[in-house]
């Protein structure tokens, strides 16, 4: 790309924690603006542009209006990047999809006003369930440095590299004792690495907050659970937490 790529940020259903990570880049913000031209970013500037080279999407799709808006953004963007687990897989928001009645969920969350038209939500979707997504940046919230590496790669015309190997590797590199040996259920063998295995390194099992690797071996998880005497439900509940799509098959 000859001149600096025009970049815009949009948010959908989320806590905006991931945008905050970007707003918190501090001195790197200047480096970032050397690289790209930020034309739209509600969190730090006002204004609108007709077209974008790269659209960064945060949050999940939960309403009809969202669907229309994301399709419109897609049409006006050369590249579209979903960032944060809400955008990537639905994230925490996807939890509601596991409930039997969405009606009940709405009543629980919004009380008497649950029937207002703008609260008319459908089951949570990741962005790529609605439009084509060129790159995903996983994490809840995202890691600032991973975000920067993706922007750099795109600006240099390369494909960003996001780890497609499990958290166990990073855990082994830090020479941790495996939590399974300490009687805890850990999603490390399925979870997408990139966080440096922070949780297991502090004695806390991994919840796969960055989603899973591309082809997680859920059947094998089943065998581990058998070996350590856990039930399928126990593990499935953990996987559901971050809206990871695959299920542990029986």
């Amino acid at each position: 790309m000859g001149s600096k790529p025009k970049v815009a940020f949009f948010d959908f259903a989320c806590c905006e924690g991931c945008q905050l990570q970007i707003a918190n880049l501090e001195e790197d913000v200047i480096g970032l603006t050397n690289l790209v031209d930020v034309v739209e970013f509600r969190e730090i500037l006002t204004g609108k542009a007709p077209e974008y080279d790269i659209a960064f999407i945060e949050g999940s799709i939960t309403r009809k209006e969202d669907e229309e808006r994301i399709k419109d953004i897609r049409e006006r963007s050369k590249l579209l990047v979903a960032f944060g687990q809400c955008a990537v897989s639905g994230g925490i928001n996807r939890l509601k999809n596991n409930r039997e009645s969405l009606e009940d969920v709405k009543k629980e969350v919004y009380g008497d006003s649950y029937n207002m038209p703008h609260l008319d939500t459908f089951p949570t979707k990741g962005v790529d369930e609605v439009v084509k997504v060129d790159f995903h940046i996983p994490g809840c919230p995202i890691d600032k440095n991973e975000f920067l590496s993706v922007v750099k790669a795109i600006a240099l015309g390369k494909a960003p590299s996001i780890p497609n190997y499990p958290v166990c590797i990073e855990c082994k590199l830090r020479e941790n004792e495996c939590l399974f040996d300490l009687d805890q259920v850990c999603l490390g063998p399925l979870a997408r690495a990139g966080c440096g295995a922070v949780c297991p390194s502090n004695g806390v099992p991994c919840d796969a907050c960055r989603g899973t690797v591309d082809n997680p071996n859920q059947n094998a998880m089943h065998e581990i659970l058998e070996k350590y005497n856990y039930t399928i439900d126990e593990i499935q509940r953990k996987i559901n937490l971050f809206g990871v799509k695959p299920e542990v098959k029986k």
């Binding site: 190997y165 499990p166 166990c168 399925l190 082809n215 071996n217 998880m221």
Partner: peptide, 13 residues
């Protein structure tokens, strides 16, 4: 192979 997570632990260590 069916049981393998492709986690790479075995080669890393």
């Amino acid at each position: 192979g069916e049981k393998c997570f492709s986690c790479g632990s075995c080669v890393l260590v």
